[in-house]
Nucleic acid binder design. Sequence first.
DNA 1: CCGTTTTGGGTAAGCGCTTTCCAAGGAGGC
DNA 2: GCCTCCTTGGAAAGCGCTTACCCAAAACGG
Lengths: 342, 342
Amino acid sequence: MPQRAAGSVTLADVAREAGVSLATASRALNGGTRQVRGDLLETVLKVAERLRYTANGPAQAMARGRSNVVGLLVHDIVDPYFCSIASGVMRVAARHRLTVTIASTENQPEKEVEYVATLRGQRASAVILAGSRIEHRTLQRRLTVELTAFEAAGGRAVVIGQNRLPFDTVQLGNRPGAADLAARLTGLGHRSFLVLAGPPALLTSRDRLRGFQDGLGRDGVALTAGRIVHTEFTRDGGYDAMARALDGGFRDGCVFAVNDVMAVGAIAACRDRGLRVPADVAVAGFDDIVTLRDIRPSLTTVRVPIETMGEHALDFVLSERAGSPRVKHVTGEVVLRESTRL
Amino acid sequence: MPQRAAGSVTLADVAREAGVSLATASRALNGGTRQVRGDLLETVLKVAERLRYTANGPAQAMARGRSNVVGLLVHDIVDPYFCSIASGVMRVAARHRLTVTIASTENQPEKEVEYVATLRGQRASAVILAGSRIEHRTLQRRLTVELTAFEAAGGRAVVIGQNRLPFDTVQLGNRPGAADLAARLTGLGHRSFLVLAGPPALLTSRDRLRGFQDGLGRDGVALTAGRIVHTEFTRDGGYDAMARALDGGFRDGCVFAVNDVMAVGAIAACRDRGLRVPADVAVAGFDDIVTLRDIRPSLTTVRVPIETMGEHALDFVLSERAGSPRVKHVTGEVVLRESTRL
DNA sequence: CCGTTTTGGGTAAGCGCTTTCCAAGGAGGC
DNA sequence: GCCTCCTTGGAAAGCGCTTACCCAAAACGG
């Protein structure tokens, strides 16, 4: 048996000191609906305060069969997109005395399954998947199984991004957002396009690419296969892909990088090759990352209410479970800036 | 009593199915030093696998008197500086099967005390304070009391930043770093300086300011009080302070913003007033935030191994407690780039 | 070949809470 | 004034694990 940790005050101490039973002390401090007589309540609270009592989280979690932990799964914690989601989640969580634990898959989607299992073990009250879904049947099926087990064990699962899993989802309108962007760019007079897309399996990237094609198609502009470059979903991915395209002879067109950090990489690649943006090459991104608003030329992009998405996700967690999975739609808004001026 | 959560497999289930006692099952799956006979071990592992058993975290934590949670306290999770620290901490944590919970004080240092208390309640194995210490006797005393209680309860406390609290500390050489920067800037020929400092109480800001003054002093350059502007430790703070300085007539000098995001704000303010950097105003920052490396003009700054600091912090957590607080020194390195070219 | 260690399985006592169940007392209703 | 209903305190049964302790059997030493 572990020795009693020194200096740790238990509920029993408070109860004894206050001259009430354990049950009463519990009800006074962390209880639910049951009433406690006014004077007793006050005494207990006062004693707890005096002894600097803090409830033992694990013990509460065990007795209740549920902890107050919300797990947030991201692909990369340094990516400002995920930071913003985390910020939204944490702000709402703090208001409801929930603890947020963050785990990063480091861009290995198979780790999601593993982390959900861990969170199930922790009896977490919810798990929020913030990373893009991917096109991978086996993996997504295993994830569904694990998430179902998680919900069966009493937790809540919420997905941010694509509505591909049978759980409450905060869905971002990637496709319409990208279509709008395409329309605005053709409206500006652009006719020759290049898309820097992420890994082919990444749904966020696919949707943005497809939406962009939708938008171009409506204006009768075609995007040939050669004008789609797949790369990493990162700044360096954007840089490399842009560099390759330029070395392959691409000039005088408009580049759509499927996210802002890739767009920043693309601009850097252009600059390193002596090309001016937007004079020689126009560049647009997606997300409107706040940290990147000071990039010059300022980036044409699609503004996404990222923090709000995190807040919505936690709202799902806090609300009653619905009969069937709910979807909260969130839309982006095109912001034209210098990087695509013609 | 909470009803038994459906679909949740307990260690007892595994033991029964494997035909061994609870103790043996426990020792086979999560046990410490005690040996389990080979065949039994194998059976237990196989059964656990088949039943998809996951240990109940809270129960383990309660039985052991300690959870495997590490709490990370930051001032603002969207700030890339803290993201990088979190990244370093999480990378090491994942290797040691530790769970990281992040809490943001939202720049209200008094919340630190509160969060440490919560973590004590969670029986967290460690708490890492990542935000800058502040000059505030009462608050720091209360924090020390709380952290001492935390360690008395068996946890580990680690501080990143200034060595002001009697706990293991990863100390960043802000003062020498800023002094080096000052030396290099005077070396470049700069003679007229302006410092955009953070809130007066923030030690990170104070140390960088003081170090900068040290460095200037060695080269016989003085910094008058009028040339120090206090502002928020953020991008917008940098913008506002720079704008005020320019409106107050500041021209033709070198601006040291005590961190990179403030420097970015300062550059934006210059641009908005039609001033060129570095031709009209030179600007330097501190931190070398990766996300900001694509800002043009590229930023002269002091490179800080931020992720490494997070890693060191967790190394402290993982190592044995020493007799007296240990300090790991980390230094910055000046990187001259375009923004201060003369 | 017997006494002494060592090895390793099992039993059961907690860890610090929550919550069910029971009982006692008070408030109303007739 | 008796019965019922409501309120609220307390006793105690867990929640799912870890581990101290016990004990049988194997290993070892002389």
